[in-house]
Simulated assay, not measured.
Amino acid sequence: MRDLGRGFGYLMKGQRWVGRHGRWFGFGLLPGLVTLVLYAGALVGLAYGADDLTAWATPFADDWASPWQGLFRGFLTALVYALGLFLAVITFTAATLLIGQPFYESLSEEVERSEGGSVPSSGLSIWRELWISGRDSLRILLRVVLYGILLFALGFIPVVGQTVVPVLGFCVSGFFLAEELTSVAFQRRRIALKERLALLRGRRMLTLGFGVPLTLVFLVPFVAVFLMPGAVAGATLMARELAPVPDADPVPEQEPDASPAGTPHLRKDQPTH
């Protein structure tokens, strides 16, 4: 249980770090604000077009008598919008990280620099990093969808579906949210997705202590925008513990010229006899 509190501690440390570095906090807000505007526009468009989408998808209901047609299509419209909102919530972090890759990369590097020690560098171009980040995010999204389908099915089990399953759902979401956020620091260490997941599973309680509280707060995307810079900073601090980078070997000091055994070392200005 100590790891659980330690993971939450990293979340708080990250928020305090950006609180002490206001310039980096503002810098880290930009990708989240851009993503929020894009998602808000998409949800508004979906709200206006959901009726037409439902009517287009259900031509067999055109001749249904009132009120059955209205009730049926109204239910489907609400379902479509709820699905869009769910997808927006679970993809918001991945989209923000993808859009803000250069921003969060710089923020993460600054966190490591402020903590001392070696600052790793992937050595990859920005486009290569974006490709890897997008590919890995898609793989994580597929895993989340599969777990979501399984948990949805388990939700129909009496009692368990209303108690245990929601808790499992938050744990799954928290684990993968932590993976997404630590990926910024892990990718700079050239750690592949499979290895990242193994590291996080090896310290599962640490990962959940970081990710689950954040998941609860990230249910409100507007709040997520303001917490994202600190979340990246905290994830970087946690990644330093999970995959520390050894300091560069110190440059050996130059030893003075050795003198023959039994002969004292003479200064240049010391006369010889």
Rank of each mutant, 00 (worst) to 15 (best):
Q187R: 15
L79K: 05
Y147G: 02
V159L: 15
L142R: 08
E105H: 14
H273T: 08
E241V: 15
Y39E: 15
F176R: 00
V225N: 01
E110K: 04
L83E: 09
L30F: 14
F170V: 06
F218N: 11
G14I: 09
R16H: 09
T35M: 10
G100M: 04
V111C: 03
L177W: 02
L142K: 08
R16G: 11
L266C: 06
V80K: 09
L138D: 03
C171N: 09
Y39N: 11
Y10Q: 05
V89N: 12
W68V: 14
R190L: 15
F176L: 09
A88E: 09
G7M: 05
G100P: 02
L181Y: 04
A50D: 06
L85I: 07
I90V: 14
G134M: 09
A185Y: 00
L46R: 03
L227S: 03
L36Q: 12
A82W: 08
L38I: 15
L216Y: 07
L208G: 01
V164L: 15
I132Q: 11
G26F: 14
V220N: 10
F176V: 09
I126P: 02
W24V: 00
V37K: 11
Q270Y: 09
T54Q: 04
W131I: 14
A50T: 10
V80Y: 12
I157K: 08
K268E: 07
A55M: 08
T96P: 01
P271A: 09
G84H: 11
L141C: 05
W68P: 10
L150W: 13
R143E: 08
G100D: 09
G26I: 11
T215L: 04
L29E: 01
M1V: 10
L71Q: 12
L197W: 08
V89A: 13
S122T: 08
F8Q: 05
Y147V: 14
A88R: 04
L107E: 03
L33F: 07
G148T: 12
P246L: 12
E112N: 03
V18M: 01
E180H: 10
R204L: 15
A178D: 02
P244H: 13
P229R: 05
L76A: 10
L71Y: 13
F176C: 03
L200N: 08
S118E: 15
V119S: 05
L141H: 06
Q254K: 06
S114L: 07
W68D: 14
R240Y: 11
L36R: 04
A192H: 14
L4N: 08
L4V: 08
L242Y: 02
L4Q: 07
T93S: 11
T91R: 04
R128Y: 04
S121Y: 12
G26H: 06
A153S: 08
A224T: 15
A88D: 13
I90D: 00
D3G: 06
F210W: 07
S106T: 06
L200Y: 03
T236I: 09
H265D: 02
A239C: 06
A239G: 12
L38C: 11
L242M: 06
R188F: 01
F176I: 10
P166D: 11
Y104L: 07
G7P: 07
I140A: 08
G209D: 10
E105Y: 10
G49E: 13
V232C: 02
R139P: 00
